[in-house]
Computed example of a mutant assay.
Amino acid sequence: MEIVIRPLDASLVHQANMNSMGGKRGDLSVTSYESYCDRVLSWPISDEKKQKIVDQIYQKLSEQLRHEARHVSWAVAGPAKYDPRKLDHSDTILRLSSEFVEWFNGLEKQVKAGTQQDDKRGRLLRLIEFADSRPELDPTGELAELSMVDNAKFIELFEAMLPKYKWRKNSNIYKLYLASKEGKVKEIKPEVFFENADLTAFTEGDRAYIRFTMKPARQLIVALKSRGWWWNSGKRAWSTYLDRLDKEWVAGISERYAKYV
């Protein structure tokens, strides 16, 4: 679909220019509005969601523009013998501007967090490297966890680090190494079963996960909890056990809860 970006009211832009010292207050508001809309268009979310956010930007900045058009600073009001108390909208403009920036930055953070890939392998490799570099730390636990993510890399690192750590043959890590060499350790990898611009749903081990591109509204959170889903901060996703998973319900979230994703 084509995203429609409505222009700000030209008469309000003109009036804001006329009431400003430099004659550009309205033009600056238009530039800011278009810039925010362009940023939304670059986000990896559905066109429907982009349109919804762009429309919200229009509503919020139109309200701010209405006050900017009526605002007459004391420098102008004084010589013209206007009552500055009636024409000064600066406090309202500052409040609306602050609220808008906070709202928009919150959305942008959600998008960035939602689109980050869960690089468990990379995280484990960094932890192993860090622990190996510190004499007071031991990378054994992270190394064992790596076997479930990247079995070949686990074997490589175990063999390279064995002379230093001298793991005993009866230790759990050594038994895990032998099992890995024999192909008896199965890597646990995420399997995506549904994905669109709003969310990614996948299974890993004995659990299912839903990772939203943006934080869902309260109504959808209530629906998730009522179906046995809970927030998993480690995965940055909503989680449930496989025996509670209803794939058809998950696939219908974007349509059923369109207002809340």
Rank of each mutant, 00 (worst) to 15 (best):
R227M: 09
I210P: 07
A223Q: 14
T213Q: 05
K225E: 15
M214F: 03
K235T: 00
W230C: 01
R211D: 04
T213N: 00
R218T: 15
S233G: 10
I210S: 03
K215D: 10
R236N: 13
A237P: 05
L220A: 11
M214T: 12
T213H: 01
W238C: 01
G228I: 00
G228K: 02
R236Y: 11
W229R: 01
N232G: 06
A208I: 04
S233K: 13
R211L: 00
F212Q: 01
S233W: 03
P216D: 05
K235D: 02
A237V: 01
A237N: 06
Q219R: 14
R236S: 12
V222G: 08
I221K: 11
S226K: 14
F212W: 07
R218P: 15
S226Q: 14
V222L: 13
L224E: 02
W238R: 04
K215Q: 12
I210R: 03
G234Q: 09
L224Q: 02
F212C: 05
K225Q: 15
I221Q: 13
K215Y: 11
W230D: 05
M214G: 02
G234M: 11
Y209K: 01
L224Y: 12
V222T: 14
R218V: 15
I210Q: 06
R236F: 12
A217C: 04
A237F: 04
S233M: 12
G228F: 04
S226G: 05
G234T: 13
W229G: 01
A217P: 03
A217I: 00
P216L: 06
G228E: 06
S226N: 14
R218A: 15
A208Y: 07
Y209P: 00
W230F: 10
G234V: 10
A223I: 08
M214Y: 03
T213D: 00
S226A: 15
A237M: 09
K225D: 13
L220H: 08
V222W: 12
Q219N: 13
W229Q: 05
A237C: 07
N232F: 03
I221T: 13
V222I: 14
R236G: 08
N232Q: 09
V222P: 02
K235G: 00
Q219S: 13
I210W: 04
A217Q: 13
P216Q: 06
A208H: 08
Q219V: 09
A223E: 15
N232C: 09
R211A: 02
L224S: 06
V222S: 14
P216V: 00
G228M: 05
I210T: 02
W231R: 13
W230L: 07
S233L: 11
I210G: 04
S233H: 11
M214Q: 10
W238G: 01
I221V: 15
R218Q: 15
I221P: 07
L224V: 09
